[in-house]
Every structure is written in structure tokens, then in C-alpha cells.
């Protein structure tokens, strides 16, 4: 798992890289809040902006999709669950299953939202060094007393790293099971245990390796954080985004 993944920092000197990390973190929060409130029109506008940003940053969309394939399967499941469980005008009726028009719509919007948030997170992680994320979280926690700020910053950064990793691990474990012809086993209990235990084992071994690697590189909590400097254009970006999000909240 040590190889370079799409969910890692890509060096560059684009505008998105130069933006103050604290501003970027606020933007991330604003956008993910706004997305949850947005209807199809606003989602369309946001997707367009994001697509332009992704093109501009030259993020490899293809390899991102390949890496997200297991996540896409999950999204499909979410879509199916939503369209089955939402009541409304029936579209397809098959035995006791009813797929309603409202359900399809609700499912599509939910999937679209999740997809957008993941893409926003991806652009954030791709343009921000982990140390900068940690430092920014620390900066925001400054007014809160009595908590280990540095450790919390590190842990938030680690959580961001782990989420895509867990999806990859789950997918690889599924592949390994399939290679061992698990489809021939009908017992769901057998299949579940043979998936869950190796999956957790692998994930923990990865985490263990990460901890050892950090230790080997003399990780310590009290290190000098990068300096922040917010310039005028940073605040302008923030203002534009804030206005846009307010528009979404209002309408």
C-alpha cells in the first residue's frame, strides 16, 4: 500500500497550491455544508466549477476512477437502497419490490452529493501537504484549552489518509476471496467471516506499518509547523465562495 495513490499530495505551483491552508479548510467546510443543502441546479453549477478546477490541476481523473471503483460500487448500493426505500409514485414494480420515481430522484441527488464532496476532498488532499493540514487544524484548535492539539491535528490528517485506503483494502480482500472461489460457498456466515477477519487483519497491518514508518522517521509531536500567510486574493476567494454558499442556503 506504499505506492503512490491518487489520494496523495501532488506537488505543483498552481493557484490552488498557493492558497492559504486555513482558507482552504474553511472552504472545504463551507462547500460540504452547502452541498448537503443544494438542489440539482446548484449541484450542477458546483460540478462544473469543480470540473474546471480538476482540469486546471491536471488531476488524473482516470486513475482516480480506477481507485474509487469500490467506492463507486458502494454508491450504487446507496442508490439502490434509496430508490427502494423511498415511498412515492411507483415506476417499476417487480414482485414485492417497488422502485418509485421519487426514490430514483432522491437516490440520484444523494449519490451526486457524495460524489461532489469526495471530489472536493480529493482536490483538497491533492493540493495540500499533510503537515499543512495538521498545522491548520492545530491553528483552528488554538482557542480550545486542555487538549493535545498537535496530536489531534495529526490524527485528522491520518483519518483523511485512511478512508480511501480502507475502501481499497476491502476491494482487494473481495478480489482475493473471489480468486479462491468463494462464490461456491452458499453459507453467508462463512462468507462473512472469511471476508471480515482478513479485511481487518490487513487494515491493521497497514496501520501498523504506517506507525513503524513514522517512528523510523523520528516522528514527534513538537515540530515546527509551516508558516501561514493569508493574502488579499485568499480572502477574495473566500468571499466569493461564501456568497455562493449563502445563495445555496437561501434558495
Amino acid at each position: 500500500m506504499a505506492q503512490l495513490t491518487a489520494f496523495s499530495y501532488r506537488s505543483g505551483n498552481s493557484y490552488a497550491h498557493a492558497l492559504d491552508v486555513r482558507i482552504k479548510l474553511i472552504l472545504l467546510m463551507l462547500v460540504s455544508l452547502a452541498v448537503m443543502d443544494a438542489g440539482p441546479t446548484a449541484l450542477g453549477v458546483m460540478s462544473l466549477c469543480l470540473m474546471i478546477l480538476v482540469r486546471y490541476l491536471h488531476l488524473p481523473l482516470k486513475s482516480v476512477c480506477v481507485e474509487l471503483r469500490y467506492f463507486l460500487i458502494l454508491l450504487a448500493l446507496v442508490f439502490i437502497a434509496r430508490s427502494l426505500s423511498t415511498a412515492g409514485d411507483p415506476l417499476i414494480v417487480w414482485k414485492w419490490l417497488t422502485i418509485s420515481r421519487e426514490g430514483m430522484k432522491a437516490g440520484a441527488v444523494v449519490v451526486w452529493r457524495i460524489m461532489l464532496v469526495v471530489l472536493v476532498g480529493l482536490t483538497f488532499v491533492a493540493t495540500t501537504r499533510p503537515t499543512e493540514i495538521k498545522a491548520a487544524v492545530e491553528w483552528f484548535l488554538k482557542p480550545v484549552p486542555l487538549i493535545p492539539r498537535a496530536r489531534i491535528g495529526t490524527m485528522i490528517g491520518l483519518v483523511l489518509r485512511f478512508i480511501p485506503l480502507i475502501f481499497t483494502q476491502a476491494g482487494e480482500t473481495l478480489d482475493a476471496q473471489r480468486a479462491r472461489a468463494v462464490e461456491h460457498r452458499k453459507n453467508p456466515y462463512y462468507r462473512l467471516t472469511k471476508f471480515v477477519i482478513p479485511f481487518f487483519r490487513r487494515t491493521f497491518e497497514t496501520a501498523d506499518k504506517l506507525a513503524v514508518a513514522m517512528e523510523a522517521r523520528c516522528y514527534s509531536e513538537n515540530r515546527t509547523n509551516p508558516q501561514f500567510s493569508a493574502r488579499r486574493r485568499d480572502f477574495m476567494v473566500l468571499a466569493v465562495c461564501a456568497v455562493f454558499c449563502c445563495l445555496i442556503f437561501l434558495f
Binding site: 458502494l74 448500493l77 446507496v78 437502497a81 426505500s85 457524495i114 496530536r151 495529526t154 490524527m155 485528522i156 491520518l158 483519518v159 485512511f162 478512508i163 485506503l165 480502507i166 475502501f167 487494515t203 491493521f204 496501520a207 501498523d208 504506517l210 506507525a211 513514522m214 517512528e215 516522528y219
Partner: peptide, 22 residues
């Protein structure tokens, strides 16, 4: 350090477990 990494891992696992909401 190990426990820090494990705690972060569990937070991430909880987040992943929350994705599939019915």
C-alpha cells in the same frame, strides 16, 4: 504513536461504516 495511528484508523473505519446508510 501506535495507539494514535490505531485511533485514527478506527475513526476512519467508523466513517466508512457510516457511508452505507439505509
Amino acid at each position: 504513536l501506535h495507539m494514535t495511528v490505531y485511533a485514527a484508523l478506527f475513526a476512519a473505519l467508523t466513517a466508512v461504516g457510516a457511508y452505507l446508510a439505509i
